[in-house]
Computed example of a mutant assay.
Amino acid sequence: MICVYTEDRWEDILAAVSSVRAQSRPALETLLVVDHNEPLRDRLTRQYKDAGDVRVLANAGPRGLSAGRNTGIAASRGEVVAFLDDDAVAERDWLKHFAEGYADPRVMAVGGRTVPIWASGRRPAWFPEEFDWVVGCTYRGLPPGRVRVRNVLGGNASFRRSAFDAAGGFATGIGRDGDKRPLGCEETELCIRLSRVRPDAVLLIDDRAVIHHRVPEARERFGYFRTRTYAEGLSKALVARSVGVGKGLESERRYTTRVLPAGVARGLRDALLARPGGAGRAGAIVAGVVAAAGGYLVGSVRARRGGAAFSVAPLGTGRPGRTHGAAPGSAHG
């Protein structure tokens, strides 16, 4: 499934679809879910009118990525549903490596490794690898290989259909909504919810399942970095409100107490050795932590005053011939 929302990414969308259609393990189908953009939906329908393996759908729920994913899940026919960002391309064995993880019946989700493609041609010297999640990519601190994790990362992930049958769909009101504030964490909330209803569930990341994600120049700037880290704090507050602080911040504790201090130390060491960007990376890590903490505090206050700000869409069986949208009236951020 590829969720799309703007014609500005037309060439990226075509490249993403082509990478799926070229997989060594073919997909049963490729779903393009269009988020409330009729001209884009019409254009994609014309583009793939003769492609029997590509279906173009309109988001049947409120505007945003979560409702779009829920629309696609309900309309899909496969036993495993994989998600690819609309500005990314998958390596040829991406689906093959996902499929291998499901040989174990306990596995409910498998994610992969996302590598940035910087629009400027190279990583900005100040941009720390520990914060590559800011641009939707795998960050320093995640363990290598095929490992068990609390949650997969949404733009490069897959789930068994039975996971959605057990836990419901993605929560609306928590994730991205087009070009508005870049919230996130909808896949984190879903994975924690899934683990609660299925305590035996195993969630994996396999770093052989690789996609390459384009990072536009606007997201290489410090202003976006600051905005995105603040928004992550807001999102984490919503998740903690829903699933509890213990589970909601379980992985983040290790990240902030071990991974980030080590990153600051590396940056300062590089600065002392006169290596480019060392001081900038150390400063960016500190700024990112402060921004995220600020967002979390603001989000926590808002959540206490207004209660949970999102809802979970109940999904049907998704059998061919039936289409189920997000729950009517769902709040969306």
Rank of each mutant, 00 (worst) to 15 (best):
N37G: 01
S66C: 09
G246M: 08
G329A: 08
V210L: 14
G294Y: 09
V197G: 02
D42N: 07
I205Q: 06
A265S: 02
Q47L: 08
V34M: 03
T227A: 08
V202F: 15
A103R: 14
A293T: 10
P199G: 11
L28K: 11
F222A: 04
A265I: 05
A16K: 00
D42A: 13
G154T: 09
G223A: 12
R266W: 04
A88Y: 02
T114G: 04
W126H: 09
V34K: 04
R55F: 12
P116S: 05
R43Q: 00
G318T: 14
G184C: 15
R305Y: 02
S300I: 03
V239N: 00
D104M: 13
A82Y: 10
V264Y: 14
G68V: 03
G248S: 06
D200H: 14
R304T: 07
V197S: 02
A167S: 14
E186S: 01
E11G: 02
I285Y: 09
I13G: 01
A279M: 13
E232Y: 13
R21V: 10
A82P: 13
H212N: 07
V20H: 08
P124T: 06
L57G: 07
P105W: 13
R226K: 09
D12H: 12
I205W: 07
T317E: 15
R150K: 07
W94V: 05
R214M: 00
S19R: 07
L14T: 03
G294C: 13
L249V: 03
S76H: 11
L142C: 06
K180M: 05
G278H: 06
R305E: 01
E7R: 00
A201H: 10
K180Q: 10
V33N: 04
G72K: 04
T317P: 15
L84A: 02
V4A: 14
H36T: 00
T30P: 08
A282S: 07
G61S: 00
W133T: 01
P26R: 02
D179M: 00
G263F: 15
G278V: 07
T323R: 12
E38D: 11
R55N: 10
S242M: 11
A274K: 11
A167C: 12
Q23M: 15
V290K: 08
V17A: 10
E29Q: 13
C3I: 10
R46A: 05
G155K: 04
S300K: 06
A209H: 07
P314S: 03
Y102N: 13
E129H: 04
G64N: 08
G141W: 14
S66E: 15
A237S: 10
Q47N: 03
D270C: 03
A274T: 09
G112R: 08
A231W: 06
R198W: 15
V264T: 12
G121I: 15
T114H: 04
G52L: 11
S158L: 14
V20D: 09
V34E: 03
S76F: 13
L194W: 15
E217M: 01
R253V: 13
V290C: 11
G169N: 02
P314W: 06
A287W: 11
L28F: 10
R176A: 14
D206V: 13
A82W: 15
K247H: 09
D35T: 00
R146Q: 14
A271W: 13
G136M: 08
V298D: 07
V149A: 09
D177C: 00
R122V: 15
W118A: 13
